[in-house]
Amino acid sequence: MAKEAIREISFITRNGRRIPKVPAELNWADTFGRWKARWAIGRMKYAVEPGIYAVGNPDADSGVYVSANYKMSFDCLRSSLAGRDGWILVLDTKGINVWCAAGKGTFGTQELARRIEETGLSEFVRHRTLVVPQLGAPGVSAHQLKAQSGFSVVYGPVRAQDLPAFLDAGMRATEQMRRVHFPIEDRIVLIPVELVSWGKYVAPVAAVFFFLAGLNPKGYSGALAISAGTQNVLLLLAGFLAAAVFGPVLLPWLPGRSFSVKGLWIGMAMLVLGGLLLGRRIDVLGDSFSVAAWVLMVPALTSFVALNFTGASTYTSLSGVKREVRIAVPIQLACAALGIALWLVGLFV
């Protein structure tokens, strides 16, 4: 995997090893890189080289902080160490963030033990303590690591931004630092990735609707594709955008625990809104077949998109998602299939 170069890098030497030293301050390139990753541009290649890094002027007693090699994780950590001296031990998580990588096990006990060995960490630090982010705990087993490498794990706070307060308190986390929340700002930053990743599928589907809309009992009409096709594309995009934007934003307020139910409300709200806006002019959508088609397809779409936001959320369990997928996806598929069938019939009546 191509790795991101870190600018302003210098080197220090410890025990004959040349160790890269990185600044704690992020520059414009780091900020731009973060923005790109949020828009899913080169996000799966946004990685730094695994290994040991120095921040400030660390010595044999300085703290060791473990991170993933997703550059956004690494940058969050080093910027929270501003004004301190420390070592950053970067694991090879294939460019994935700490929490997701811990879930897969790439941020894990084996990789951590291997990386301690490979970097010769025990030769240039006197103590035997590692600060591991709490969200690394699904992959790291503190007692097993101790047995394997002799290093003890102190679980740091969930968010790197709480690290200074954690360190100032003598490596003690408050209850608040230990909890994962999903506040509105955290949900909003995920919207661009939702839009881009789903856009890949929605755009071709929209194109198909556009071109098929030109079909009519007399053959094919380009003018019809442009008039009716555009309307259909707008309906599809409105449904998709509503789910991808309002799903994350309104998550706590949409009724129900299930994500597909939350998404269903968005679709229902759109139908009500559409009905109010169009009123008796609902025939601009075409015949009653296409009206019925969209009444089925819009909620199916918004429900499905919302269901898929489970993966980006911070609190859904696999058992819960399995149950939800088993119940909701067949219904969503049936509604979508019936809707498409009605829509196609509508072209020829």
Binding site: G311, S313, L318, V321, E324, V325
Partner: peptide, 11 residues
């Protein structure tokens, strides 16, 4: 039963 609560992964 450890796992990621991700619908896309399940699907």
């Amino acid at each position: 039963g450890k796992g990621a609560g991700c619908a896309q992964a399940v699907i």
